[in-house]
Design a protein around this nucleic acid. Structure first.
Lengths: 202, 202
DNA sequence: TGCAAAAATGACACTGTGTCATAATTATAT
DNA sequence: ATATAATTATGACACAGTGTCATTTTTGCA
C-alpha cells in the first residue's frame, strides 16, 4: 500500500503520478519498468517516489487493486443470482475483468499486465495475488454441487482450480486477439467442453 | 543460439559456463539474473560472455532447448503408439518434461523456469517459445477425432489449446507440490474431467 | 508570527550493463 | 621455422538506473 503521504496528496498530483506510472507499465514488462521514467514524466523528485511507495510492486498492486476491487463481490453476487452455478460464476469473473480493463482506454496497460503474469506464484505478478484478495473457499457453500460429477470436497477443489486456470488463460489471451468476439466465443466453447466433456457421450 | 565461438570451446569450459548459468538461474527469476555473477562464477571475462551469447535470453533458451529437445518426437511417438489419443499425448508431454526436469538434480533450475513462465507470449519465457519448436498442427492428422465431440477443425484447435493450457499449468504447479504423486494424481483427474465433463451425465 | 512536524529535493554512492580498443592466442602459408 | 592473418580473450569505460539521506521547503497550528 502507498503511504499516508501519497494518500494525502492533492488529487491532481496523485492522478498525474498514476497516469505516468500507467504509461510506463504499458511500455515495457514489469521488470523493465523504470522509476526514473515515471518520476520524470510525473515531474516529481526521485526521492518523493520512495516517500509514496515502497517499491515498483507496491505501486502496481495499488493501481490494479484500486481498479479491480470488486472481484470478491462479483463472485458472491454471481453465485447467489445463478443458483450456485460455477460456470456462470467464471463467466462473470471474465466479463467483469474484461469490462474493467477495456474501459477507459486501458487496454495497453492491462495487456502488458496479463501477458507478463506468471504461470505460477513465485515472486508475484501472479493473477491470484494481484486480484483475488482472500481464499475463495469461503464461497464453497454457495456452490450448487448437485449437478457436478464429484465425490468429495477434494474433487470440488480440483474443479475450481481447473476452471480458474482456463478463465485466467482466457483473460490473458483476450488482449492478444484481433476479434474480441471470437476470443469470448472460444472461451465459452472451452467452458462447454469442460461442462459436457471432450469425449462423445454414449 | 550461442555463437560458433562458444560451440568450439573446450568441453570443460563450456560445461563450466553452463553450470554457472544454471546456478544463477536457479537463484532468482529471469529478470534478476546477473551476467556479472555468471562470468565471475565461471571465471571468464565479462567480454567473453558477449562473444558467446547475444543475451541472457539466448543463453537460457539454449540451455533449456538443449535439454528438452525431443518434445516433437514425443508427441509424434505418443500419437502413433496410442492410436491418436490426445489425452495420452498430453500425459506423455507431462511425463517427459517432468522426468527430464527432475533428473540430474535440476529441480531448482526448472522450478524457477516454470514459475516465472509467462501466461501468454509477450517477450518470451512463454512455454511455447521455449519448448515447442514448430506448429503442432502438423500432428493434426495423427489425432483420432472419431471419439471427440467436435464439429469442425476449429473445434479441434480449441480442444488442443484447452488441453495444452491445463498441461502447462500442471507442469508448472508440479514443482511447487510437496507430494509429487498427488500432483500427478490431480493432473490426471483434471484430464478425466476434461474427457467426461464436470457435469453429471444423464 | 514563530516553530515543530511533514513533505520534497537531488546529489551521492552503488550495482550492473553492453561495448570496444587492445592484447593474446591460434591457424595458415611460405 | 617464421611471418602474417584470423580468431578469441580481456577488462576498462561510459552509461543507465537504483535506493538513501542530509538538507531545504512547505504546511499546520499554538
Amino acid at each position: 500500500m502507498p503511504t499516508d503521504t501519497f494518500m494525502k496528496l492533492p488529487i491532481d498530483k496523485r492522478k498525474k503520478v498514476i497516469a505516468s506510472a500507467k504509461k510506463e507499465f504499458s511500455r515495457v514488462p514489469f521488470s523493465e519498468v523504470s522509476i526514473k521514467n515515471i518520476v520524470e514524466d510525473a515531474e516529481i523528485a526521485r526521492g518523493s517516489f520512495y516517500q509514496y511507495f515502497t517499491s515498483k510492486k507496491d505501486l502496481l498492486t495499488y493501481i490494479v487493486k484500486n481498479h479491480i476491487y470488486e472481484i470478491d463481490t462479483i463472485i458472491e453476487k454471481s453465485l447467489k443470482e445463478n443458483s450456485g452455478d460455477i460456470f456462470l460464476m467464471n463467466i462473470s469473473i471474465y466479463d467483469y475483468v474484461i469490462q474493467k480493463c477495456t474501459d477507459y482506454n486501458e487496454q495497453d496497460f492491462y495487456k502488458k499486465i496479463f501477458q507478463n503474469m506468471k504461470l505460477c506464484e513465485d515472486n508475484f505478478l501472479d493473477i491470484k495475488e494481484l486480484f483475488i484478495s482472500n481464499d475463495i473457499s469461503k464461497y464453497f457453500n454457495l456452490i450448487d454441487i448437485s449437478k457436478l460429477n464429484i465425490n468429495s470436497r477434494e474433487d470440488l477443489n480440483i474443479i475450481i482450480n481447473l476452471l480458474f486456470t482456463v478463465t485466467t488463460k482466457a483473460i490473458a489471451t483476450y488482449f492478444t486477439y484481433q476479434s474480441k468476439e471470437s476470443a469470448k466465443a472460444e472461451y465459452i466453447k472451452q467452458l462447454e467442453y469442460l461442462k459436457n466433456g471432450i469425449y462423445k457421450q454414449k
